[in-house]
Design a protein around this nucleic acid. Sequence first.
DNA 1: ACATGTCATTTGCAAATGCAATTATTGTCT
DNA 2: AGACAATAATTGCATTTGCAAATGACATGT
Lengths: 160, 160
Amino acid sequence: MYRLTNSLPYMLNRVGVRMGDLFSRRIAGYGVTLPMYRAMAALWEVGDQRLGDLAAMTTIEISTLSRLVGEMKRRGLVTRTRLKDNARTVAINLTPKGRALAEELIPIAVHFENVAVRNFPSKNISDLKSVLAEIYDSLNSIEPEIEEVNKARKAARTKT
Amino acid sequence: MYRLTNSLPYMLNRVGVRMGDLFSRRIAGYGVTLPMYRAMAALWEVGDQRLGDLAAMTTIEISTLSRLVGEMKRRGLVTRTRLKDNARTVAINLTPKGRALAEELIPIAVHFENVAVRNFPSKNISDLKSVLAEIYDSLNSIEPEIEEVNKARKAARTKT
DNA sequence: ACATGTCATTTGCAAATGCAATTATTGTCT
DNA sequence: AGACAATAATTGCATTTGCAAATGACATGT
């Protein structure tokens, strides 16, 4: 028998939201929101990203991210420069100030995660992570199948 | 070395958002949003809930949920009745119409999840789920520890 | 019984979000 | 080269969100 509370999307959302919320509050004192932290940490990991790539990496909707990057630029945390060779794209980078802040926050994130999972064998956690990564990858390939209904609707709408 | 993309909150959020997004689109044709589905499925699983309990169960912020329940009531999916013996709380229930819609959507959710995880041994998935449940439970107990900084701030503010 | 405190929900309001349309640039076809 | 399509990012606008304040109801102490 089906139970929402035993379904995977529900369980993922619940833990994800809760952890995000706790971490949010942990870093609020630095004037940094969770999406901001994610953007900074993503840029710290892979610099010189285009907006679309950063959106994909952080799972932040692109227009939201555009404004977020604007705000971060205003605060002097990132630069956003049009490329000379392809001026419709933009390269986003951490400024020294942004990098310093990221490097201040990352240890907090590490500690947070350590505390959150300290009751579990590290094998369990690494298994968990690899399954999560695999599921994420597999979602791309099943997307068409899941959306069969939508595709039909879209097609009908397009014809009109 | 730290990588955002290998951190647990990030990975959870990424898979959760992606799955939620896909499922959202899958049920959009029924005029139902994802939070609405969650509320209905939660009530289907445990009926006669108070607003606060339903909020805890669905991880939806309580004022958001209050409005969502209002909308669902307007659509005839749920009832919201003040209790006679304790009129400050409210009991929320599915209407027959709401129940019927829930029972139409649940098989879709089941199918969605089956497709999403079909490439993985079911052992892996059940392990995944039990770790997720345990982590969630453990978060309550570590909350104070994670928030030590905030607590200090709050205490200071209260004294003022 | 009254005042004060606590609990559950709702609402006001400002900020955040996301879709669709717009702008700006590059790519392609003839 | 010129027209048209495609790509990338931004912005307009309506909706959604969440915090904090307000409301309404019960609980407790005197």
